[in-house]
């Protein structure tokens, strides 16, 4: 998208292709046409200026900055697409440190031959997600790589947020007896993408939870007793909780019956041999809070969209071992440890 030239070329000139051509990444006329047709968004003046860098305003002395790359396959999945995901993911990373997301920069690496209509759908997903979360996509870049050297489309987004009123949330604040809360069902995104890959010959009713967590953060942002908040993305609930246990040295005891897992997700996991607790979420948060406010946090969450299934799933427990562990009380009343993600999950044989 980057161009030194102004914005006075007509965007009405036809692209003339249905798929991405290598020459559309060479920075010349074809690149300009691609930008005009696909990326430009009349609502966003900063982006449409096509300057080498965006100059933006800011309110306070502190910024939060985050960056993430999105390589999900397939790029379109039930409940979202990689474009929307690339905005929500970065917005969520800012939100869980208490920052107010403001600006996003993005870079696309597109494989030659990639469908133009899919690309439009992805870019549209980005703009919609940006509008919904009130962030501005202010600058961007596009590269095209030869067929065979890229997996369709890769998107990087960098996000900047205002953080002068951000609460200090950190695992070091966690105390024994604190409650562990989750804002909704776990594993939806991971299970949905697994199915959408079609490698498994299964069809399902699954939908990704891909979305903004800002509405979940806002009501608890200035609540005393919130110790730590994070979104369980790659590696799901398990990686997040193992990180907390490792960083704090506390054990975490979970009640399996309380952890919300949609029946469709449970079925897919049963058939393919996956553990829903290691599958990614893209619109959930986990919070560790003081026990006296956990009811309040849950009430806030349950009153808003995508928070209806929020649950108190476990407690922080002092332990005598050198390392914190994550244990589960099973529905039968037995105990086991939570599976710690070690290798890439592969479908099992039977």
């Amino acid at each position: 998208m980057k161009s030194a030239e102004g914005n006075n070329h007509s965007s009405s000139e036809p692209l003339g292709t249905e798929s991405i051509q290598l020459a559309q990444g060479n920075g010349g006329t074809l690149t300009k046409r691609l930008i005009d047709h696909v990326f430009k968004n009349k609502a966003n003046k900063d982006l449409d200026l096509l300057h080498d860098a965006a100059t933006v305003t800011f309110d306070g002395p502190y910024l939060s900055i985050t960056t993430d790359s999105f390589v999900v396959s397939p790029p379109i999945f039930p409940g979202g697409n990689v474009g929307a995901l690339s905005v929500y993911g970065t917005v969520n990373d800012l939100a869980v440190v208490g920052a107010t997301p403001r600006y996003i920069s993005t870079a696309f690496i597109i494989e030659e031959g990639f469908s133009l209509s899919t690309l439009k759908q992805i870019v549209n997903g980005m703009h919609q997600a940006a509008a919904e979360t009130n962030v501005a996509i202010v600058t961007g870049d596009t590269k095209v790589v030869p067929k065979g050297s890229g997996g369709g489309v890769y998107i990087n987004t960098t996000g900047v947020g205002d953080s002068q009123d951000a609460p200090i949330w950190d695992t070091s604040l966690i105390k024994a007896g604190d409650h562990v809360l989750v804002s909704g069902s776990v594993g939806d995104h991971g299970a949905c993408v697994l199915l959408a890959r079609e490698d498994y010959g299964l069809q399902g009713q699954l939908k990704s939870d891909c979305g903004s967590v800002v509405p979940l953060i806002d009501p608890i942002k200035h609540l005393d007793g919130v110790r730590f908040v994070r979104d369980p993305t790659r590696g799901g609930l398990s990686v997040l909780l193992h990180d907390v246990a490792n960083e704090t040295g506390f054990d975490i005891e979970l009640i399996e019956n309380n952890i919300p897992v949609r029946p469709e997700v449970a079925s897919v996991c049963e058939i393919l041999g996956f553990d829903p607790f290691i599958l990614a979420c893209e619109g959930r948060i986990v919070a560790v809070v003081a026990p006296d406010i956990s009811g309040k946090v849950l009430a806030h969450w349950r009153s808003i969209r995508n928070g209806e299934q929020a649950e108190h799933i476990g407690v922080i427990v002092k332990n005598t071992e050198s390392k914190g562990r994550v244990t589960i009380v099973t529905p039968m009343g037995g105990r086991r440890f939570m599976n710690e993600l070690e290798d890439e999950p592969l479908p099992r044989i039977c």
Partner: peptide, 30 residues
């Protein structure tokens, strides 16, 4: 699981993998 020495640590149906994944290696602690 990420670096199996024997076959039983590979599959989700293998006893070692199952025990490892559910932490039976140190069940006494629990």
């Amino acid at each position: 699981p990420a670096s199996p020495k024997g076959a039983c640590m590979v599959s989700d149906e293998g006893a070692c993998r199952i025990w490892y994944s559910s932490g039976e290696r140190s069940i006494t602690n629990v």
